[in-house]
């Protein structure tokens, strides 16, 4: 009940922001798509695993949109295609990396994403290298929109996707499969003695995370109408992990809360300190981890508890 209320409040707040500050419409769209990718990171963190390479799947979603746009004019179809390609790639990589945990899991993901980044930069004839690919604005549900109408439509599309994904992930986390994720973190061997394949449980979560990142990437591509290899670069993966920790892994709202705060701050800070942005993120990350804080979702939870206790 409290969860539904908080989600409702969040949606209203975002709508108000988007209504009164047109530039925030764009930022909110980007924040929602970041939140989608981070939702996947959160699933993996539930299993005690961290991927330093999930920007790979964001890039997969985004580049799929860019590659297919000349042949496909419908945004929804592009979105689905982005998710499908990211999931397929996730299956290929996931079958391998889910054999590993901890260091190997994190670093193998980083390695694969860096290979993808190099390829996106080097295969110029295919990807146009660092210049990236421009995406011609597609139609949405058959409507050829532009200007504020397109911004609104895309924002609402991201919002619907986020609500849908958040609901599904919340349900998943309450299921035996989602519960087994936490068991991987605390006592994986016991899971095997329960007849449950830890690897299969982790692979499911990995596929979900790749799909979510793919959707996030596709929305980003539709919003920016331009994709570059930077989408796959390690700094982007690092940002996803950062937002996951900032938002907190205790609740599906965490990633979106984290993403909104992150994108709002970035609009100002990244411009002011372009060469120190990662450093600032690094310091904040250290503070959150070393103080064992539970992120923004945890903060909100504590606040609600305190208010509830008083009333």
């Amino acid at each position: 009940m409290r969860g539904t209320l908080t989600v409702g409040a969040g949606v209203v707040l975002l709508l108000l922001l988007a209504l009164f500050q047109p530039w925030l419409r764009f930022v909110s769209t980007i924040a929602l798509s970041t939140g989608l990718a981070v939702l996947g990171i959160m699933l993996l963190l539930r299993a005690g695993q961290v991927s330093f390479g999930h920007a790979l799947y964001v890039a997969a979603g985004a580049y799929t949109v860019a590659f297919l746009r000349p042949y496909l004019g419908e945004a929804l179809l592009l979105l689905l295609a982005g998710a499908a390609v990211a999931t397929g790639l996730g299956l290929l990589v996931g079958l391998f990396v889910t054999r590993y945990r901890d260091i190997f899991f994190g670093m193998l993901n980083l390695a694969f994403s860096m290979v993808a980044w190099s390829l996106l930069e080097k295969l110029y004839s295919l990807t146009r290298g660092t210049d990236g690919i421009r995406v011609v604005r597609p139609s949405l549900l058959g409507l050829g929109l532009d200007g504020p109408a397109w911004d609104w439509a895309l924002f609402l599309l991201a919002l619907v996707a986020a609500l849908l994904a958040g609901g599904l992930v919340a349900r998943y986390l309450g299921s035996p499969a989602g519960s087994a994720l936490g068991a991987i973190k605390t006592r994986e061997t016991r899971l095997e003695f329960a007849g449950i394949s830890a690897r299969r449980v982790l692979l499911q979560a990995y596929l979900a995370s790749a799909a979510l990142a793919g959707v996030g990437g596709a929305i980003t591509a539709l919003a920016t109408l331009h994709v570059t290899p930077l989408l796959a670069y390690w700094t982007h993966s690092g940002e996803l992990v950062f937002v996951a920790i900032l938002g907190g892994t205790g609740h599906v709202l965490g990633p979106f809360l984290g993403a909104v705060v992150f994108e709002l701050v970035r609009v100002h800070a990244a411009a002011a300190f372009p060469d120190a942005w990662q450093m600032i993120l690094g310091f904040v990350l250290l503070v959150i981890i070393l103080s064992a804080a539970r992120g923004l979702a945890g903060l909100l939870d504590d606040l609600a508890r305190r208010l509830g206790g008083r009333g």
Binding site: P176, S179, A183, A194, I196
Partner: peptide, 21 residues
């Protein structure tokens, strides 16, 4: 004892019940 330490006792048992389905 090999328990899932971040789960409740009930969840520990329920997850094992669910493992059969």
């Amino acid at each position: 004892p090999q328990l899932f330490t971040e789960h409740t006792v009930l969840e520990n048992v329920a997850l094992h019940l669910a493992a059969r389905s």
